[in-house]
Design a protein around this nucleic acid. Structure first.
Length: 291
DNA sequence: AGTCGGCCCTGCGAGC
DNA sequence: TGCTCGCAGGGCCGAC
């Protein structure tokens, strides 16, 4: 699960290594990697220039230009899923075991490879959505702005959050409310804000929501500064290197280890068929808990 | 319309 | 040694 910081690390790599280059040929080695694409991806990419590298939440996209066309009408979208990697490598380097898509460029330089062990990630070409505001591709128009974007509206988030009738962690993971937050950073932000994951959203006060948003932004910014989290060595930048924020995690993956604030052993609870880590003392379970 | 559970997929470590 | 099982989990979709 690369989350916002890991995806941003990849975006920066694409911006410096791939933006401005023109695709010579692309090859799809596994159909599942393009399951959401309509049409033939190699044909859609051939001779097109990857204008820049953009991101919203956990989604990446590269606007596609034809020749000297000014406005991109389509984009190549990438989602890394749980184990996807976008690597910039020598075209002659050995093929990775889980290589799904590769593309070479007209300049003959380093090629772009999409490698994905668990195949939850995917690539597709899609039109840009019509409308005001920041241009985004149609398939991700329903995704909310992420908390590091200028377009993110704290006030609107607070209003919509309090209208929900669910637990705070479910809400944080809902990409149509706030994007970019996954299981790791949700747990870390909730610990920082001293909130239990099952706290009903409508009971959160405005100051507490502001505190939580600040915690989300702080943990993501810190992780970005360390190149992201590399929990199982699958999250790497375009050069295959891992970040080291996992050393700074306060609760995620730290079952029975002491809370960095009070020393109480961290607990792990089942949540939505996955895990939630929290401190039993700093984040007591509310009486009106919502799963 | 909002909420929630099931499903997709592979590798790895624990247990037998 | 070699099998099975549980776990890791983001996003989409159907059910209510």
């Amino acid at each position: 699960m690369p989350e916002l910081p890991e995806v941003e690390v990849v975006r920066r790599g694409l911006e410096s290594w791939v933006a401005g280059r023109t695709v010579a040929a692309a090859e799809v080695l596994h159909p599942r990697a393009v399951r959401r694409n309509v049409g033939d991806l190699p044909a859609q990419l051939k001779d097109r220039t990857l204008a820049s590298a953009e991101r919203r939440g956990k989604y990446l996209w590269l606007p596609l230009r034809n020749g000297d066309q000014e406005e991109a009408e389509e984009a190549l979208i990438a989602h890394l899923g749980m184990s996807g990697q976008l690597l910039v490598v020598d075209p002659l380097s050995p093929v990775e075991k889980h290589l799904r898509v590769r593309m070479g460029f007209t300049d003959g330089g380093l090629e772009l490879r999409f490698v994905d062990q668990r195949t939850f990630g995917h690539l597709l070409v899609a039109p840009m959505a019509a409308g005001r505001g920041r241009p985004v591709p149609e398939p991700i128009a329903h995704i909310a702005a992420d908390p590091l974007e200028d377009a993110f509206d704290d006030e609107e988030f607070a209003v919509r959050l309090r209208l929900r009738r669910t637990g705070i962690k479910r809400a944080l993971l809902d990409q149509s409310l706030i994007s970019g937050v996954g299981n790791i950073y949700a747990d870390e932000a909730l610990w920082r804000a001293r909130l239990h994951w099952a706290r009903p959203t409508e009971t959160l006060t405005r100051p507490k929501i502001a505190e939580l948003l600040a915690a989300v932004r702080a943990v993501m910014t810190e992780a970005l500064g360390q190149g992201g989290t590399s929990f199982d060595s699958l999250y790497v930048n375009v050069n295959g290197e891992s970040g080291y924020f996992d050393r700074s995690l306060a609760v995620y993956g730290r079952r029975d280890e002491p809370c960095r604030r009070c020393g109480t052993p961290i607990r792990r609870e089942a949540f939505m068929n996955r895990s939630s880590y929290s401190c039993p003392k700093c984040q007591p379970r509310p009486r009106n808990a919502r799963p």
